[in-house]
Computed example of a mutant assay.
Amino acid sequence: MIDLHLHSSASDGTDAPADVVRLAAAAGVTTLALTDHDTTAGWAEAAAAVPPGVRLVRGAEFSTTSPDGRGGEVPAHLLGYLFDPGHPAVLADQQRLRVERRRRIRVMAQRMADAGYGVDPDELESRLDPDAPIGRPHLGRALVELGVVGSVGEAFESLLAKGGRFYEPKADTPIAEAVDTIRAAGGVAVWAHPWARLRGDVIEPEVIADLAERGLAGIEVDHRDHTPADRDRLRGLAGELGLVVTGSSDYHGENKTIPIAAETTAPDQLDALLARATGARVITGGT
């Protein structure tokens, strides 16, 4: 089985990078990708933990914004695989986003503290490495520990949702620029869950077509937030545009209920993806 979208505690997952690798292997995954938000900090630990017979595709999930095809802008997530983590454009983008993430969460935490929820912005930041990307799930876990909500999911539904009274947007990277950055660093770019309608507005097919011309390599089609009808449409669109089709769990440990390998990628699609990458190598356990 192949799962190309997993998160660790290097960003907003709850399992250490090495544990993500071990859990994936125990679940029968033969190729996994570590794709933490806006960081490659977990790469070394994950690579050291790969067991024989398992392959690790190192990547990251880039925070971006995209035209929606209707005159507006929407948040978008872009998976970058096998890029050079030391490329200047990658380093600059990830550093800017880490700073922006901390600003945003501090604003949200302070709003909650002012409203009497007992959140301490300084204590929240002190839990993380200074270079680690912080996100709403970290704030959600703090709310669980305080007894405000019963789960991180409940925190998102009741307090952290976009447009809510505590929400603060962050300045993400334009998706076309992120595709250029990944490609310049020798990697390949896949649009993560582009039609996850429960998360908000989605983009028109024309936007995917425009980005394919820019160098987008694939679409994450099989994802729990995609309806069967949308999967069929996206699969057809990928065929028309010559894009790779992936499927992934988007695993976050205890922060989400989805298990590893709940969605998977076909071997031929993985091969097509890897053939386009030159920035970093696949790690194979036991070699």
Rank of each mutant, 00 (worst) to 15 (best):
K170V: 09
G163L: 12
I134N: 02
E204D: 15
V148C: 03
W191E: 03
L128S: 05
W191D: 02
E204T: 14
S126Y: 05
V152S: 04
G147Y: 07
P133W: 01
L128A: 13
A161E: 05
V148Y: 03
L124W: 06
A196N: 03
E157S: 14
V188M: 07
L128D: 05
S126M: 05
A196P: 00
E204K: 10
V202F: 04
A209P: 08
P194L: 04
S151I: 13
G153F: 00
V202H: 06
G147D: 10
I182T: 09
R199A: 08
F156W: 08
A176C: 00
G163K: 12
A192C: 08
E177W: 00
E154H: 08
A189G: 05
F166R: 07
E206K: 13
E125H: 13
S158Q: 15
A192P: 07
I208S: 03
G164E: 12
V202R: 06
R183P: 00
L124E: 07
G140K: 02
A192E: 09
A132E: 13
P169K: 04
L198I: 11
D201G: 13
T181H: 12
L143R: 09
P194M: 06
P205I: 07
I208G: 03
D210W: 01
V144G: 08
E177Y: 00
L124G: 02
W191Y: 09
V207A: 02
K162E: 15
V144S: 06
R136M: 03
A209N: 03
L124D: 05
R165K: 15
A185Y: 10
I134E: 02
S151W: 14
V149F: 11
E168L: 00
R141Y: 04
A178H: 12
S126L: 10
H193V: 02
D201H: 14
I182E: 02
G135H: 03
L159E: 05
V179A: 04
I134G: 04
W191I: 15
I175S: 02
S126E: 14
S126D: 12
E145T: 12
I182F: 08
P169G: 10
W195Y: 04
I208W: 03
A185F: 08
G163C: 12
D131E: 15
G150C: 08
L211N: 07
V149T: 04
V190A: 11
V207P: 03
D180C: 01
A189S: 15
P205R: 06
E145I: 00
L146E: 09
V190Y: 04
G147C: 11
G200E: 06
A155K: 06
D131G: 07
A178M: 08
